[in-house]
Design a protein around this nucleic acid. Structure first.
Lengths: 230, 230
DNA sequence: CGCTGTTTTGAAAACTGTCAAATCACGTGG
DNA sequence: CCACGTGATTTGACAGTTTTCAAAACAGCG
């Protein structure tokens, strides 16, 4: 498989940062990237280790997490397809990046990619745009976590997952499967597994949702969730 | 005052994003920026309003905050001199930016600045670097907030302020004044004013700190704070 | 069909939030 | 320079929620 066909089969070639490049520049960038498939649970980047790679997520889902020395996990971000991972300009990685599901990545060497930033100003601008989005998302998570009450956090989380599952942001999916385990959701929301479970049963009793197995969710009353989330 | 002298008197001209430019380009960028002085408590940018300006902080301190519809404030970020504010590529601002102290800004019109990004690739790269730092800080705040227990959050906050007050990050100041009110600290940590106050007195009773008035802090036992923070 | 790990449920303890009042700090004016 | 007034900070008591520890129910998988 040559470099050009790599991009041709890229499932996110329209939305990814590289899309800001013209065909010729893009072909040159493609020569620097290599595909990599990782399995669910695999560690993509590791905190503390040398930060010598960047990557674009082609398919699947990743989590950015930090582990306290007591082993408790804290989720800092979820990465969806077309997302970019790797801490730019940092000598060592501060966080772990772990695959939530089997995933495909397009991996770049750090120094080659940073040289490409110099050569392709449009790429820098596209990454700047994505970085600004990531910052906004991180701050949304801060606002979510400081929200009083576990129920509001769970409701807001469910709505956000429904939006991510739906094809357009305006049309949240009425039915979807959570890509995270209970422990991961709890680590994301800053609550315990038990409280999360209790709030889910409580929301189900109130008729806002219905659970289908451990990970399936039906949104019965999105409006009720919206109200609970604020 | 002409444009060149503006940069000559810029107190952060070494560290700011513009520093990535050569003299000629920098002079051209300076022509786009205007100085603005704001007083403590003044709103620099307002959530919901048109997002038509960016700014660099020259001196003072700013807070990025979000207000729930019940009026409760949530601090999302603190901006120090040489910091950049303004949500790039967003049509409307999502957050409020408010001066914590009297501050000096260098303000740029949005469209002019974005055109400058196209003309000066180094500027885009410098902003990318700063944006990555902001993202790291936001995620540190997430990790801080998900920390169990109010005492750990307060201890971690005090250490972070000590590092910010000290001239080098490795030499935290043993004595400093908090730039934030109790309400602002509480909004930053995701706890109430009362709990914050209780933890401060508790830390003082344990001999970790000593309070000098409402805002003065003496670090008596940094090691004890470090241990409490984890 | 049985097994293993995850999820849910239960009860008690610890913590934080809420409401209310006292104290303190700081700027203003005498 | 000191007294005063206003707002911020601290303290107290209590209610509510969350965490913790422990056990049961469940789901997924060989």
């Amino acid at each position: 498989m040559n470099e050009q066909s790599q991009c041709n089969t890229c499932p996110v070639r329209e939305r990814v940062a590289c899309a800001a490049l013209g065909p010729a520049d893009r072909a040159e960038l493609a020569r620097l990237g290599t595909r990599r498939r990782v399995r669910k649970g695999a560690t993509v980047f590791s905190a503390g280790e040398g930060n010598d790679q960047y990557a674009t997520l082609l398919s699947g889902a990743l989590k950015v997490a930090s582990f306290g020395e007591d082993g408790t996990e804290r989720l800092l971000s979820l990465i969806h397809p077309a997302g970019f991972v790797g801490e730019m300009f940092a000598p060592v990685a501060n966080h772990d990046v772990i695959a939530l599901t089997d995933s495909d990545l397009c991996v770049f060497g750090r120094s080659e990619y940073e040289r490409a930033l110099d050569r392709f100003p449009n790429l820098a601008k596209a990454l700047l745009k994505r970085s600004a989005q990531d910052l906004l998302e991180a701050r949304s998570l801060i606002a979510l976590q400081s929200r009083r009450g576990a129920r509001a956090r769970v409701a807001a989380f469910l709505l956000s997952m429904a939006r991510a599952a739906g094809h357009s942001a305006e049309r949240p999916a009425k039915q979807f499967a959570l890509p995270l385990s209970r422990g991961e959701i709890a680590a994301l929301l800053g609550i315990t597994i038990e409280t999360l479970s209790r709030q889910l049963t409580s929301l189900e009793c109130d008729g806002a949702i219905r659970r289908q197995g451990a990970r399936g969710i039906d949104l019965l009353e999105p409006a009720l969730l919206e109200q609970t989330a604020r």
